[in-house]
Design a protein around this nucleic acid. Structure first.
Lengths: 186, 186
DNA sequence: AGATAAAAATACCGGTTAGTATAAAATGAT
DNA sequence: ATCATTTTATACTAACCGGTATTTTTATCT
């Protein structure tokens, strides 16, 4: 059982329930490794959750960034975001990043810092996407790009979180479509 | 130190940080009472948090319900909700009910049941408000009242939560105004 | 004042947490 | 095969959790 496999086990455990509800003991048991081995590999619980977050970022979040940078235009990109939030089976139990962000105060300093970095990167990606839409005349603007980017990101986060809490995906789609309609009305 | 005072201490402790991060030991210490006293009064941690939630509902949430039932019309009521979320000093550290709802799986069964009851009552209040707006021709509808009520409630919750996490109240207002503009555009 | 009942303080229980020291076992090199 | 190194399992620490049993203090009533 190498480090990458342990990372996968920990990621899925954190992802399915909540980082705050999964102990290092439980992860060792699930991964079939000893506690000293885990601590030799990751140093601390904070080191582990930080590594898990990095793993999650390059394995899952990268897809969301790819959608934003895909240059598919305003409508198609918003639809793709809505599809991702409402239909992607991987988001059925929520987004690990949003779970970590929601319980940020319970994380160690390393992991918390990474959360902030990723949050800033996500806002930047949303902002670049909206700026591009503005430049192409697809979006009328009317408010600062940064504020709109924050709004867009939070709506996606809200949709994913609601779906993870058992809300009917069709209703989530309904609400998300309504929330994002502010970008596409002429 | 009577039960009501203990309830106040516990409510503010839960409210300021998070119910999951405040132990009964800490509450006993803050309230200056012994642990057996607390258990004699409330039976269990679940009983305490349930009592705190009831206390919070009749002391704080009742005001929000009053706004919804005030019959002030669509615009004024939405503005009042936005004001409450963005400016009410009591919401500076968030809404205890939303904190409990977000960490529902960590609550005892009694408290969890109360959370569900209050959530249903809130959705009902939002729905009644929107139905009234529809009847008065202030809102064009175009979607099921229940879905719109859910949307409205979640947007308020999002605004309050964002403000509690340190977001600039002016920006929260900006986003909330944008999110609720879907109800007031002709 | 003295007996009695209520309340409180204290200490304790079993369990779980993150993290580590130690000892046993498996691996690898010569 | 024997020695050295590394990994492992196990056991442990100290702190905290929710909850309780016991004892001490306080208050009340006659």
């Amino acid at each position: 059982m190498n480090a990458g496999q342990v990372l996968d086990v920990a990621m899925n455990a954190y992802w399915q329930s909540d980082p705050a509800d999964v102990s290092v003991n439980a992860i060792c048991q699930m991964a079939g490794i000893s506690k000293p081995s885990l601590y030799r590999e990751f140093g601390s619980e904070d080191g582990l959750s930080r590594a898990v977050l990095d793993h999650y970022a390059e394995q899952v979040l990268s897809e969301m960034f790819a959608v934003l940078h895909g240059g598919q235009g305003l409508h198609k990109t918003l639809d793709a975001l809505i599809d991702f939030a409402c239909d992607d089976p991987r988001m059925e139990t929520g987004c690990l990043f949003y779970k970590m962000r929601a319980g940020k105060h319970r994380l160690g300093s390393q992991t918390r810092a990474r959360v902030d970095e990723i949050d800033a990167a996500a806002q930047g990606a949303y902002a670049a996407f909206l700026q591009s839409s503005l430049d192409h005349g697809e979006w009328q603007g009317g408010m600062p790009v940064a504020a709109a980017a924050k709004y867009l990101g939070e709506q996606i986060a809200l949709g994913i979180t609601q779906r993870a809490s058992g809300e009917d995906p069709a209703r989530v789609r309904e609400m998300l479509t309504l929330a994002l309609s502010v970008f596409t009305r002429s």
